[in-house]
Design a protein around this nucleic acid. Structure first.
Lengths: 142, 142
DNA sequence: TTGGATGCAAAAGTTTTGCACGGTT
DNA sequence: AACCGTGCAAAACTTTTGCATCCAA
């Protein structure tokens, strides 16, 4: 079998090519929203791919470590979310009503961060911007 | 005894005036950095004010609900931090080395948020901006 | 063959809750 | 007196870990 993109990706970063690992990355890649470990676990179950929840966590750790996946803490309710890393700098727009998370790829902070580095003498490594509000659908309902 | 500021605050929001509650708000008010429930619990113990950890959590809940205190999730390690709410819009600069958290009261997002509301048709309720980097002290050490 | 991956069960860490009792208003 | 707040213990919830076994390379 010729290497698919994902297989090649795994090989390239020294991860073994297992069924559940492939399935987990596949779920992440297809997902339009960040997902929790538990959601992945349940989705695997639906697909009749039995994988233990610890395996899911361990896999997510590995994938995060290899930068294939990004770990987010934006729920407020103390559980982490994960999303496939498309190597794009992004921010999130979160609907407080339906909890929908939308990525925003524009970033208004370039110059600000440079100025802040000068002012504070920090070296700035990154930033996180989450914006909260109510999406058009939820606004209509109220 | 005449009402102090805090006593008046409690009365104003319908909270009873108990020893541990006063002490918890006092700790928060004096703290230069956001603190965790556990830190508060330990600080109370040092002051020989015995308060159960559940009480600390319950009090923090109440204070957060009454907007006297703000709950933050910026550690990355899944525990919440709390800080006295001085009614100032702020962002955080977090040192990745020593974990020091510095508040930044300037906000570069006013116009951006307005434009985003127009573009997305969301009504924007708020935002959160955390900036990560290395503080001057830690930069020197490396 | 060998080291990484997995399942299972147990533990760890944080936060919440039920219930009886105690303190503030 | 009424109700809110508290202590204690147990539970809930998310995530991690130890260990034996299994599987991909």
């Amino acid at each position: 079998m010729k290497d698919t993109g994902i297989n090649a990706t795994f090989k390239g970063c020294g991860l073994k090519n297992t069924k559940s690992r492939l399935a987990i990355l596949d779920i992440l890649e297809r997902s339009v929203q960040p997902v929790s470990a538990e959601q992945i676990f349940l989705e695997l179950k639906e697909k009749n791919i039995s994988a233990n929840l610890s395996t899911v966590y361990r896999t997510l750790d590995k994938l995060t470590e290899k930068k294939l996946v990004t770990k987010l803490q934006i729920t407020g309710d103390s559980r982490a979310l994960f999303e496939y890393n498309r190597m794009v700098h992004k921010h999130y727009l979160i609907c407080l009503e339906c909890k929908k998370i939308t990525a925003i790829e524009s970033c208004p902070l370039g110059d600000y961060v440079k100025a802040l580095a000068r002012e504070t003498d920090y070296s700035i490594a990154g930033h996180r911007l989450d914006i909260y509000g109510f999406c058009p659908d939820c606004r209509k309902k109220d």
